[in-house]
Amino acid sequence: MNILDDLKLQYKLGGVAMRVIYWNIACFLISLIFFYKFSIGQFDFPNWIALSSDPQVFMFKPWTFLTYAFFHFGFMHLLFNMLVLNFASNLFLTFFTQKQYLGLYILGAIFSGVVFALSFYFLNISAPIVGASAAIMAILVGVTTYQPLMNVRLLLIGNVKLWHITAVILILDLMQLRLENMGGHISHLAGAFFGFIFIKLLQNGTDLSIIISRILDFFANLFRKSPTTPFTKVHKNYKKPTEKPASRIVTKDKTQQQIDEILDKISQSGYDCLTKEEKEFLFKAGK
């Protein structure tokens, strides 16, 4: 199995968190090809991708309230965000579903984008913004709100409470609010606030992620081909179909059992713990 097949398998089996990370990386690679200006040494994102605080722009490009959350201004910007996202995702998915995770990521990005646009509009500042930080803060603060006293082991530091990590990040955002990248810090704090509200509503029985789930299901059903029922001619000399040989069912059960055992191994120890033979088996079974 080559590296490309390995990446495809990780994308297929890694769940929604891994796919969100892949989407961010893919968008960064695309932006390197189309939006990086070597003459000025930085990215120049068009206003149909980056979120602008100018109402004359974002009112006619409402999708930018989401697209901005998948692009980054540089490699280090992407790297730091994906490290924090991976950390927060693993914690969040310990307690909540993948649909709730995706719903919080998307809604957190949209809410933060709205707060950023309105804040800069009233401050009479016109500037664009890109980055997944706000959506990531929604995920991190969300799981911190639910389990603030969870012990997290950090390299060179040891065990700390989850709320300690989140508090440090929020304090840094507050300290830098009036400095460079004010729009970014405003969106971070907005994402944190939304993550807190999302979990409190969820604890009271209101799951906002249902909004995103229903929208995605609607578009999925829209583009999914409806199964056609061909006309079947009825014969009087109908014969009961013979059952398939038992040996085929046993073979299928053994294959499925092996797949289940490998998936259990992934959930307990991660994808990297698989042997080369197990990875190849999963890849062939997924075709």
Rank of each mutant, 00 (worst) to 15 (best):
M1Q: 07
D6M: 03
K8Y: 06
Y11V: 03
L13I: 10
V16M: 15
V16C: 09
Y22P: 01
W23Y: 12
N24L: 04
N24R: 07
I33C: 05
K37C: 04
I40T: 14
G41W: 07
Q42L: 05
F45C: 06
N47E: 12
N47P: 00
D54T: 08
M59L: 14
F60H: 13
F60K: 06
T64F: 03
F75M: 13
F80C: 07
F80T: 13
N81H: 12
L83W: 00
V84G: 03
L91E: 14
L91P: 07
T94S: 15
F96N: 08
F96Y: 12
Y105P: 01
L107K: 03
L107T: 05
S112Y: 09
V114N: 04
V115Y: 00
V115G: 01
L118S: 09
S119F: 08
S119Y: 10
F120Y: 15
F122T: 08
S126D: 09
P128H: 05
P128R: 05
P128K: 05
A132G: 11
A132F: 10
S133L: 06
S133K: 03
A134S: 13
A134P: 01
I136D: 01
M137Y: 14
I139F: 02
I139C: 05
L140E: 10
T145F: 00
T145R: 02
Y146K: 11
P148H: 11
L149D: 12
M150S: 11
L155P: 08
L156K: 10
L162D: 02
D173F: 14
L174A: 15
M175S: 07
L177P: 04
N181V: 05
G183P: 12
H185C: 09
F193R: 00
F196G: 01
L202G: 03
L202S: 04
N204C: 06
D207M: 08
D207S: 14
I210W: 12
I211G: 02
R214T: 02
L216Y: 06
D217M: 04
F218A: 14
A220H: 13
K225W: 00
S226A: 12
P227E: 05
P230W: 05
K233P: 00
H235C: 06
Y238L: 14
K239M: 02
K254P: 01
Q258H: 14
I262M: 04
G270A: 02
Y271R: 05
K276Q: 13
E278H: 14
K279Y: 00
L282K: 09
L282P: 04
F283W: 10
